[in-house]
Each structure stands twice: as structure tokens, then as C-alpha cells.
Design a binder for these strands. Structure first.
Lengths: 248, 248
DNA sequence: TGCGTTCCCGCATAATCACGCAAAAAATTT
DNA sequence: AAATTTTTTGCGTGATTATGCGGGAACGCA
């Protein structure tokens, strides 16, 4: 077996498992541990992996302490409060994820009698704490990064729903590109959410205004209401109002 | 398992729970307490956490925010530990709810590569924290009391699954009446879980032995393994062993 | 105060690593 | 095709690192 082949195999293994053990590799490749170690060292120098005692880790294997996002930002509370007024008794509400949404669910008036549809696990959990809310979770394979269910199954079942309201936590909103998001699987679900609801509401902190991500969820003409923590008369919002969005 | 991996896992646990216990970690990671302690010490020197007696705290730990983590009974840890040995790489595991199950999910070895199917929201959330587990949530209407999805939809989709293992949190188990539970909708789902799995494991604290509820989930002949916190040779368990159950 | 847990220290063991050297393999030149 | 150079590999040695265990000290709780 050629050296290049071996190293390619190592990279491949790293990509699959995010790690390799020297001891494993020297069995799989039928070479001595020294050779494996030299290979790993070379690959490490080329920046293709991180060498550690006993093996190597994927370059993407970095662990940082991300301080847990404080979800009691006052802005989010303001937004949540405004949005809650849109939810009336008897409504069927489709609700996405995000910390703002969690804040909203937490603040729901206890006597509200509404049905909520979500694919987001933490949101579902919060909703379960509500005494009167009926909760429908559309499940399937769960996406770790967003803690939500995604996939054709979810999209299809959203298509069978006629909702009154779609509450959309929004990462990025822009005059030209509309609402955008990071991951393909997420925008698929959000699209379906918007499509099934009579009225779509975008909840966004003002810092998310006029920012974009790679993938488009929908254009602004599909959004009916925009909620930020700002006063509706704020000049940052006037361009959005001119496009026909209701500002709250 | 590589040292860095272990430390990354510790950091992750800290990020999730704001704290870790050395005693927990050494079980989860399958290393001695000394090793855990040395890891914590290293990470503390790097400023990634705060070492305290018995474990460590997140750097951002606020004493005002007491994490509402339920104090878990040591019995449940023993049970969880026994059950984890049954889960092997590549398995498809159907898993019910309950605090014991949560303990189990929390203790899953980080390098385990398995797929989990559940209908329980808190369990799904815990599973999402696991670095390698694939999580499938079978959703539908959520039952507030059990924080799980129930209904024909769930049962039907469970019927489409061929699982290797069914881990069943058990409220009541009795020699005559088998496993019983409180609510109609729950037993429907549990029945389906048992039916779709090759092997059914009942996890029960010994105080649940020889108790009954109103509704039967299944007779004992459908249960393959019974796990309690007791020693398998304990006389309380011998009648169950005589019925053909494996006792762990 | 007393008891169980956790911690700290040193040591033993085993695994891993780094280095040099020589054999083997591959590539290059003659 | 033979000879020479270069690269690669395996092995031995000793250093380094990682881990577990025992014993005594320190800690925390009742």
C-alpha cells in the first residue's frame, strides 16, 4: 500500500469518526505504529488534522465554552409580548424555534386556549408546561444543531395543516433577500410552515435587520407582520412598512 | 477514548448542566475518579471551568440560577448503568420516558454510535446533547402528563420500525399482571414499542416490583430482561427469574 | 464530634512517543 | 540492466505520558 493511499484512508476515517486511534490504524493498514505516527505527524503539519496522544482528531474538533445564551434579554421579552397579542383563543398556531420563541411560550397567558404545532424540542417542552395549550409535535429525524425535526416527513405533514398563524423566529431579514437561514433542512421546514399558515409573523431583534445568510426561506411579500423590539415608527422599520408589512 | 475527547465531553456536560459530578463522569467515561479529577484540574487551569469539591461548575455559574435538575436517586444510576451495557454500536433502540431513562441517556458513553427512537420530549432533548446518537422523534399530539407523543399516528409509525432493543421505564411490574400503567394512551404506545423490538428490557426500581396499575401494557412473557438496582441473586427477583426473565 | 466521601500524593504499570540506525523499497542516474 | 541515491519503513532503546491504586489528609454533612 502506498503512502498516499494510507494517508487518504486516514483522512477518510477522520472525516467519518472525527477521530482515529494510532493503535487501530496500524492494524487496519498493516503497518507499524511508527509509520502511522509519522503519517499523522505529516498530516498534522499540513493542517489536515490535530495530533493528540494516542491518535488524532478532526480539525473541526474544537471545544469552546460558549456561555449559555441568556434568553432573558429584555429585547426578546418586548418582542414576545407584542407577538402574544396576536394569538387568540381557538387558534392553531405554527411556531418555530429560537430563544425569542421560548421567551414567548413562557409568557403565554395561562388561560389561553390554543393549539400549537412545532418541530422544535425545547419549544415543545416549554409548551407542555402551559396548562391549556394543546401541543402537536411533528416528529422525524432530529437535527442536532437546531434541536428540531426536519425532513420530508415533517414538510409533508405541515402541508396537511391549515394554521391561523405562523410565528417565525428569524435569524436574518433583509429588504431584498427576505428571510434567510443557514441550513438547507431548516429552510425546508420553515417554508412549509409559512405555506400552511394564513398569516406569517416574523420575530426578529433589530440587530437581525438587514442581514443575510446563505439560503432563502421566503421573500418579504410572504411575510405579513414584522415584530422587533423597536417602536413601530422607528426609521429603521419604515422601508419594511413601505413593502406592505405590518410593523408591531 | 482519547483524553481530549474526554475533556471535550466534560466541557459539553458543563455547558449543558452548568455543573458536573466527578462520580458521574467516571461512570459515564468509564475511567477512574483520579483520571476525572486530573482532567477537571487541567481544564480548571486552562480556565474552562471552576473546580469544586465533588465536581466542577461552569465558569459562568450564577448562584442565583439554580439549575432545576432533579436530584436523581442512586438506584436509578445503578439501573441505568446496567442497561447501558446492552446497547451496542449500530443498534436501533426504542426508548420510553421517565427519570431513570433520562439518567440512562445522560450516562451514555460519548463514543456510542446508535440510533434512538423515542416519543418523549425530555428524553429527546437529552439525546440531542449526545455527540453521536441519531435521534428520531415520533411526533403527534403530546400528552402533558407524560410529556410524550401518543396516538394512532405514533403507534402506526412504530409498527414500521424493526428495533433491536426496547428500553421500557416501568411504573409497575407484577408476576401475574405483568407491566401495567396508568393511562390508556401511554399503554398503547408502550405496546407498540414492545412489539417492534427484538428484545424488551424493563427498567424498574425495586419498589415498583409487585405493584399494579389499572391497565396492562404486556404480560411478563413479552419481557426479556428485567433490570433493578438489586443484586440479580436477590430473593425478591427469583420468582421473575423462574418465569424466564433474564435478571441484571 | 464522627463518619463517609473526596482529595492529594507518590508510585507502579502500561501505553505512547521520539530518536537513531539499518534494512528494504522506490526512484534516479549511469 | 546495474549502480547509486533517495525515500520509506521497522525495530530497539529510553524518555514521556496516561492511568489506576493505596494510604493518609482534608472536607462536608449530620
Amino acid at each position: 500500500m502506498l503512502k498516499k493511499e494510507r494517508q487518504a484512508y486516514i483522512i477518510q476515517q477522520i472525516n467519518i469518526h472525527n477521530k482515529v486511534l494510532s493503535s487501530d490504524l496500524c492494524v487496519q493498514l498493516d503497518v507499524s505504529e511508527d509509520t502511522v505516527r509519522r503519517d499523522l505527524q505529516e498530516l498534522a503539519e499540513e493542517g489536515k488534522l490535530i495530533k493528540v496522544h494516542g491518535g488524532a482528531l478532526a480539525k473541526s474538533f474544537h471545544f469552546t465554552i460558549e456561555s449559555k445564551q441568556v434568553y432573558s434579554l429584555p429585547e426578546k421579552k418586548i418582542i414576545a409580548h407584542k407577538a402574544i397579542d396576536l394569538i387568540k383563543d381557538g387558534m392553531l398556531v405554527v411556531i418555530s424555534g429560537g430563544t425569542t420563541m421560548r421567551e414567548l411560550v413562557n409568557m403565554l397567558p395561562p388561560d389561553l386556549n390554543a393549539t400549537f404545532v412545532t418541530t422544535n424540542v425545547p419549544i415543545a417542552l416549554e409548551l407542555l408546561e402551559h396548562p391549556n395549550a394543546e401541543v402537536i409535535f411533528l416528529g422525524n429525524k432530529l437535527l442536532k444543531s437546531a434541536q428540531m425535526a426536519v425532513g420530508a416527513e415533517v414538510v409533508q405533514r405541515l402541508g396537511q395543516i391549515k394554521a391561523d398563524l405562523c410565528l417565525l423566529g428569524t435569524n436574518s431579514i433583509d429588504l431584498n433577500f427576505g428571510i434567510t437561514d443557514l441550513e438547507w433542512e431548516i429552510i425546508e421546514v420553515k417554508k412549509a410552515m409559512i405555506a400552511c399558515a394564513q398569516k406569517t409573523v416574523s420575530l426578529a431583534i433589530s440587530e437581525k435587520l438587514n442581514t443575510t445568510q446563505r439560503l432563502q426561506v421566503c421573500a418579504l411579500d410572504q411575510v405579513d407582520v414584522l415584530i422587533t423590539e423597536l417602536d413601530p415608527t422607528n426609521e429603521k422599520l419604515t422601508p419594511y412598512a413601505k413593502l406592505g408589512l405590518s410593523i408591531l
